[in-house]
Nucleic acid binder design. Structure first.
Lengths: 261, 261
DNA sequence: CAGTGGTCTAGACCACAAC
DNA sequence: TTGTGGTCTAGACCACTGA
C-alpha cells in the first residue's frame, strides 16, 4: 500500500470517527509531514484524495476544512403538470429561484447528445435559450439551464428565438400552434462539472453537477425542445412520488420546498 | 495563470476540437514535459485536472486515454407501480440486472441522513439488507443497494430480517400486515464515491455515483423502510415521464430498456 | 519485458485571504 | 501582516500491464 493511501485512510477515519468535526481543520501540511515522516508531496496527495471525495475543502490561510454533510433542497416532480395553481412543475418561479438576467439567445451546432434527443443529424445548427437562475438578492447562482430548440419549431414559431416569448413562455406558444397536449420525458444523471460550470455554480472540488435533461414532445411525438439544466449535486435532489395501487386517485402535486433550514 | 492551468486548457481544447479522438492517447508525460519546458510534476497536475473532470483515464503502459462520451442506460420510472405485467418498477429483475449474491443482513447504527428519513433518533440501530446487483454472467457489478428497515417494522414482521423474505419480497409482507397501499418517495442526487464504492462499481476517477434514495411509507404515512441505491452516474440515468394535461389518461408503464447498443 | 504512469524526496518561492 | 496552501523544480526508483 502506498504511503499516501495510508495517510488518506487515517485522515478519513479521523473524520468518520468524529475526531475532527465538520468545520474543523485538519493538521497543517507541515505538521502532517512531520507526523508521518514524509515529504510534503506525499501529504498533499493524501489530502487531495479526500478533496476529490468531497470530504474536505482547502481554504487558504485557514487550512484543510472538514466539510459538512450536505443538506439538499428538493426539486419536486409530479407526473402531471398543472396549468393553474402552483404552475408548471418546471416553472422556475415556483421552485424558489428566478432568472438573474434575460435569457441569452444563441445559434450553435447541436452537441452530439442533444442532436440525438432531437432526432437531428449531428452538429445541426439549433437555437439555444440560456438562463442563469438564482437568488437575485444575493446573486447566488443555483442553476444553469439551456434550451435547445428544434429547427422546425423555430421555423414555425419565430417567437421562440426572441428573448421575450410572451405569457406562459415557449410551451404555451407551442400548444397554441396546435402541438398540445405536450408531453415531457426527463432524465436525471450526473457528471463532474466543466471548469466553467464549477466557477459559475461556485462548486468546490469533489462536487458533481446534477444534470436534468428534459425533452418536450408534441402530440405527434416529435421532439420540439430539449432543456438541459445543471445544478450542484450537493445542494439539490430531484424527488418523485410513486403509488403502488394502480387504482389510487392522483395526489395533489407536491408543494415546492423552501430553502434548507 | 498557473502554468498547469495553461497546459490543461490546451489539452482540453485538443480533445474538444477532435485533435485527439476518444480512445486515442495524449502525448506521454515526458513528451509534454519537453513540449512545455516544464517539470513532470506540473504536467501531471494538468493531466490530473482532466482526469478529475472525467475527460481522460490513465492506463498504465498505454498512456493517458481520452474517454468516450458516456452512453447511459435508462432506469425508467412511472408514477404508479403495477403488481402484474412488468412487475414493480423497482423490481430489479425487470431492470435487467440480478442479485450477484443473497442479501447480506446487518444491524448498524442508522447513518444521520437515513435516521432523519425514517424519523428515528440519530444512530438508532436498524436492520440493513444489502444487495450487490449486476450481470451474473460477467460478474459486472452495476448497482449497490442497501435497505434500512424501521425497527417497528422488523418487530412486527421478523421475516424482514431474514435473507429470504418470500414471494414478492418485503413490500408484499408489509401489505399483508395491513400497511398497504404502500407509497414511495424517491430522491435522485449524486456525490463522489467512497473508495469502497469506486472499487466495487469499477468507477474510474472523475465519475460520480448517482444515488437513488427511496422511502417507503404505509397507509398511515409512517416510514417503514429507506432504500439507498448507488450506480455509476456515467452508466445510468433515471427517467420520468410527465403529461401536461391533467385529464390525460395514464399511459402504460415504460418498458425497461436493454443494455446500450 | 519494456515503457508507461505511480510514488516519493528535498527544496524553493509565491499568492492570497484571514487575522 | 503573515501563515496557509499553491506552484514548481530536478531527480530517483518502482510496479504494473499491454504491446
Amino acid at each position: 500500500m502506498a504511503r499516501w493511501h495510508e495517510i488518506a485512510h487515517e485522515l478519513r477515519a479521523a473524520i468518520a470517527g468524529g475526531d475532527v468535526a465538520p468545520g474543523d481543520v485538519l493538521p497543517r501540511e507541515t505538521d502532517l509531514q512531520e507526523r508521518y515522516r514524509t515529504s510534503r508531496t506525499t501529504v498533499r496527495q493524501a489530502v487531495a484524495a479526500l478533496e476529490k471525495e468531497g470530504l474536505v475543502e482547502k481554504v487558504r490561510r485557514r487550512g484543510t476544512v472538514v466539510r459538512r454533510p450536505p443538506t439538499r433542497r428538493r426539486i419536486p416532480r409530479s407526473r402531471r403538470v398543472h396549468r393553474d395553481g402552483i404552475g408548471y412543475y418546471f416553472d422556475t418561479a415556483a421552485q424558489g429561484w428566478r432568472p438573474l438576467e434575460p435569457p441569452a439567445i444563441g445559434r450553435v451546432p447541436a452537441p452530439a447528445d442533444i442532436a440525438r434527443l432531437l432526432g437531428l443529424p449531428a452538429a445541426t445548427e439549433v437555437v439555444t435559450r440560456s438562463r442563469v437562475m438564482g437568488d437575485p438578492g444575493s446573486g447566488d447562482v443555483t442553476q444553469l439551464a439551456t434550451s435547445y430548440l428544434a429547427p422546425a419549431a423555430v421555423d414555425e414559431l419565430p417567437v421562440l428565438a426572441e428573448p421575450d416569448t410572451g405569457p406562459g413562455g415557449i410551451y404555451d406558444r407551442m400548444e397554441e400552434a396546435g402541438h398540445g397536449p405536450l408531453r415531457w420525458e426527463e432524465a436525471v444523471s450526473a457528471r463532474m462539472p466543466s471548469p466553467d460550470e464549477a466557477r459559475r455554480l461556485s462548486l468546490p472540488p469533489g462536487v458533481p453537477v446534477l444534470r436534468i435533461t428534459r425533452i418536450t414532445r408534441g402530440a405527434d411525438g416529435r421532439a420540439l425542445e430539449v432543456n438541459d439544466t445543471r445544478v450542484s449535486a450537493e445542494r439539490f435532489e430531484v424527488v418523485n412520488e410513486i403509488d403502488r395501487d394502480p387504482t389510487a386517485a392522483p395526489r395533489n402535486p407536491p408543494v415546492p420546498s423552501g430553502p434548507p433550514a
